[in-house]
Computed example of a mutant assay.
Amino acid sequence: MIRKVLSFLPFLAVAGLALFWWLTVPGRIDSARLGGLAGDPARGEQVFWAAGCASCHAAPESQGEARMVLAGGMAFPSPFGTFYAPNISPDPDRGIGGWTVADLANAMLHGTSPEGAHYYPAFPYTSYARAELQDIADLHAFLATLPASETTSRAHDVSFPFNIRRSLGGWKLLFSRPAWVTEATSPEITRGRYLVEALGHCGECHTPRNTLGGLDYTRWLQGAPTADGKGRTPAITPDKLDWSANDIAAYLATGFTPEYDVAGGHMTEVVQNLAHLPETDLKAIAAYLKTLPGGG
């Protein structure tokens, strides 16, 4: 009996490996969904600022126009290792100058590289998965207008077992949630939800995570430890952030709080980005935040 069971073990191992391989295949967009899309770089610039691309992909400590050179290099320490933002400038060899709209869509919607590998979720594709294809096409058109950089992207410092990229397919099955987190009850709140839950990826910092790094959607935007474990990102639910909608919109535009304090830390970058958006978008973000249930 034992010998018979043992004879099945190789078969079970192969079947298990095949099932794992099938379940963890990197996702790709159906190319038919991209038919007829033409990117508009002017609209793409607004997507660029809403998505905060320069905050992560500009070279560390760059200022002014240098922030538009998306050479990468910023470090993101985490319990799983240190990740480094890649070069996403239009350089065809070291950046993403050779990418198609489909390549960018696969990266943002599925966390899949042009070579068919999983990206680490330090790149917030779990939020970008809610982005509209037209916005991705517009962003692709705008990125092509930026200065190219020949800087080589730095390899992530990630040890076993987190360096097994194929296992990220299992992580995505568990924690990737492209559905909206909240309901929207008006066009303004729908726009605010899109900016917060998708392009702005606010939940990536303001929502707690479980031990495997997945967002805890039951505590949406209720504050969380920073990824490096050295601080805490505040809650922005109405029970903790009691500013008026006008106060929130003004803060996002200027960085000044109602108490005449100023934004600090990473929010400085966020304000620099959001200040480029029209006032209607900032008011939509504020309206959305005011609809959230209070935290526990």
Rank of each mutant, 00 (worst) to 15 (best):
S153K: 09
I96L: 07
L139C: 08
T226P: 12
E279R: 13
K172Q: 15
T100V: 07
L241V: 02
T152A: 15
G214I: 09
G265T: 03
P234W: 06
A85C: 08
G223T: 01
V25A: 12
H118Y: 05
S244P: 00
H57E: 02
S31M: 08
Q134K: 12
G264M: 05
P41D: 11
P225E: 10
K290Y: 04
A59G: 14
G294L: 06
A250C: 02
L133S: 00
G255R: 07
D157L: 12
M1K: 10
K172I: 01
P26N: 12
L104Q: 09
K283C: 01
G200L: 06
I88S: 08
G229W: 10
Y125G: 10
A198I: 04
T226V: 06
L12Y: 08
A102V: 01
L168F: 04
E259A: 14
T151Q: 15
T145G: 09
V5E: 02
L173A: 12
S7N: 07
M108P: 01
A286Q: 04
K172G: 13
F162R: 14
P92N: 13
L139S: 08
H276D: 03
M68L: 15
T268N: 06
E204N: 14
I236F: 03
W243R: 04
A71M: 09
D93Y: 04
S7G: 09
G296D: 14
V270P: 00
T182D: 05
F20A: 15
A129H: 02
L195G: 04
I248T: 07
S159H: 10
Y120H: 15
P258C: 11
R94T: 15
L252A: 06
V262H: 10
V271T: 01
L6E: 05
L34S: 05
G265Q: 05
W220Y: 15
R43K: 14
Q272I: 04
A13F: 15
N87A: 13
R33V: 00
A284F: 01
A253T: 01
S31C: 00
K172T: 09
S153M: 09
M267W: 11
T182N: 08
A179P: 02
Y288V: 03
T291N: 06
Y251R: 06
L252E: 02
E188I: 10
A32H: 14
A245G: 08
L37A: 11
